[in-house]
Design a protein around this nucleic acid. Sequence first.
RNA 1: GCGCCUGUAGCUCAACUGGAUAGAGCAGCGGCCUUCUAAGCCGCAGGCUUCGGGUUCGAGUCCCGACGGGCGCGCCA
Length: 579
Amino acid sequence: MQRAAPSHLPMSFQMTTSRFAQSLGVLDAELRARFVDAAAQAGQSGDAVPEIALGPARDPAHGDFATAAALAAGKLWKRNPLEIAQRVAGAGIANMPGVSAIEAKAPGFINLRMTSTYWAGVVREALEQGAAYGRSDALANTGPILLEFVSANPTGPLNVVQGRSSSLGATLAAMLRFAGATVHTETYVNDAGTQLDLLADSVYARYATSFGNETPMPEDGYKGEDIVEVATALRERDGDRWLKAPEQERRSAIGEFARDTIVAQQRADLEAFGVTFDRWTFESSMHAAGKVDAAVDWLLQHGVAFEKDGAVWLRSTEFGDDKDRVLRRSDGRPTYLAPDAAYHRDKFERGNRYLIDIFGPDHHGYVTRLKAIAAALGHAGMLEVLIAQQVTLKRGGETMAMSKRAGQVVTLREVVDEVGKDAARFFFINRAPESQLVFDLALAVEQSSNNPVYYVQYGHARIASILRKAQETGRVALLERARAGSDVDRLEHPLEIALIRRLADYGRTVSEAARARAPHRLAEYARDVATDFHSFYTECVVLGDDEALSSARLSLALASKTVLASALDLLGVSAPERM
RNA sequence: GCGCCUGUAGCUCAACUGGAUAGAGCAGCGGCCUUCUAAGCCGCAGGCUUCGGGUUCGAGUCCCGACGGGCGCGCCA
């Protein structure tokens, strides 16, 4: 990864940087002003001007940047969009730094073409900002966001869907931060209630049986191999002391031990996967602090919960649910929903303005209920739930059936062991979250061009290789000039410009993808950068005889390396120096 | 039965929230290594976006209706 801009750069140099960083904003503002004029002309108020949303032109033949704002305005104002576009473009390129041409095109697009100086500035900006290049404050106004994901039961190893959720959550958090948002990540452990008792009893059955004291598993007990391992560890730690202990004491001690053991393993698996959390919250802690009762009482007091048939119900029908939901059973025990109400209330009370939860596909029926909770707590619309859809594993042609019942769940750990962290992270993130995902293990391990992970990493490694070559052949002065971006004005080859256009779009790509909760677009973008670089590399010799041209191309290679490393970092994939 | 997700090239998926000629990767076919990594590049072929209506200057995208796939609908967690 490139270092950030050295601090010894002269002030004027750094100001140049920010001018380029803001140049799109400048263009956006100028276009907006022209639209306001056009609105007045059409008898509309300035408020009726649509988003300009200047973005890269779809086809380079159209120009470098384009906006469809005139089309939107045409609809809004009931005017001919082309005429609006022509009026806006008719003012020419005055007050539009970096623009060489502006043009209106049917049915109402406005296209901008940029000067070569502008593109040179993009490369210089990337070199100066290094790892910070592409960062923005686009999402800085959202207030603190709490992103909860994985939230596994402490009853066994993490499965592949949780792997997908963790890729999604970790990358989304990184992207949101990159786009200026304040984000805290958190995971929740359901370590209370009947579930934990069942876990304790399952471990006890294995434990007792290992002493020759045949004990049947509970009916819905956890039958996985990992439970045997927990039992073995328990035996190693405590010997046979639990065989004769009273049931209550045994249950809580073994439950705690099992939870700690399994959670530690989950945490280790996640760390090996490059995923960490700012905080782990335990359901048991909500109970212990009295927050579960407090939440239910609060809901009762505020009239959004009521008592009926001896139970306490959430008035969820008032918040879009199709039926009311029980919070506290008639026997006094809370349902699953009550601690979740307490937990989400706690999240808000800790100062978070906006909550995002990522669930697995089996919990989407729970979404309405949870949103009802947020609304009942007085935070309507402040909870967003993303569903990480199902993952189907495939090895070559054969689909692997996964049955939770039979204990045949493929774990995240197994997948990571088989294909590696990088491939797993990339494959999980590579699809839209709401799309079901077919994960081909055979493809993911393949160390060949077929594998998109290697394709991107190879781009990075190739650039590193050029740098090594320059170093080894003693071209130190050249490296200096390249790092300073001294010759970037020499860049003009179509493939050079195509690559720069791509790099220029990095910040917008991250912020838009983060806003849309569509991190897969970043994976796609990384592939596009690699593609543009590989094309450039094949066609344009970097280390040639022309010193200035070599320096210019080396600058572009360095800038590309920076962006590739940055994108891979957000994706949780390593950026190797050689392959 | 009700709700959520989904249906796009042979396969796996995009399409930046209604914009320009629907794009990638695999698989298939044909080219490119005496020069910085061929884990690469260039080209060809492949589509009535499941089907039928509607909304409008414009629909893969929005609305209605079929049909197919996945998941969920407890005082379970």
